[in-house]
Simulated scan of single mutants.
Amino acid sequence: MNNLDATDLRILELLQENAQLTTKEIGAKLQLSNTPVHERIKRLEREGFIRKYVALLNPQKLNRSLTAYCNVQLKEHSRPYLDKFEQEVTCLKEVVACYYIAGTFDYLLKVMVANMDEYHEFIAYKLASLDNIGHAQSAFVMKEIMESTALPLK
């Protein structure tokens, strides 16, 4: 895994569980002092293994309790059309993830909104207003069984 040793992997696991851990707390778990832990974390950041640190928010508390996955098929597939769609869709605040996919559809969007009325507004007045949309198909999350932001490292 690109010159990562067991200590690096353990640091990454710990940070995925809780990015607020201090170097002292990580060091205590690994039986290392602050300096080597700090140097390893800085190297992992510099080499791009750690992209950023974020807070995971509760969607229900923030009135974003409806999650929909929307498959989008474009009419045209030349690079300029794909680039334009990607640029436009990233400006839609309801879209929290967008994937370019293979198969029947071209893109998979993860959309989070307050309720079905807000989703209808999103589809009818935002997504449908983008150029080159051919077809969209939605699936709605009824119950979240499991979600993780942690990558498997072993």
Rank of each mutant, 00 (worst) to 15 (best):
R43A: 13
V54D: 15
E45Y: 04
N3W: 01
C70V: 06
R79P: 13
I11F: 06
M112T: 06
G103S: 09
S148Y: 01
D106H: 07
H77A: 09
V96A: 11
R40G: 05
N34H: 09
F140Q: 11
V89F: 11
Q60P: 09
A150K: 06
K154L: 04
P80N: 04
P152Y: 06
Y69T: 09
L62S: 13
L66A: 08
G48D: 15
P59T: 01
N3V: 03
I123R: 04
S138N: 08
L32Q: 06
N71V: 05
A102I: 05
K110T: 11
L153P: 12
K52D: 15
A19I: 03
A114G: 14
E94K: 00
L14I: 02
A19V: 00
L9D: 14
Y53P: 15
H120G: 15
V113P: 13
V111A: 11
L9H: 08
P80E: 02
A128W: 07
F105Q: 10
F140W: 06
K42P: 14
D5M: 00
A6W: 01
H38L: 08
E147Q: 11
Y107N: 14
Q137M: 04
T104I: 07
L62R: 03
A136H: 14
K52H: 13
D5L: 01
A136E: 10
R51Q: 10
G103T: 05
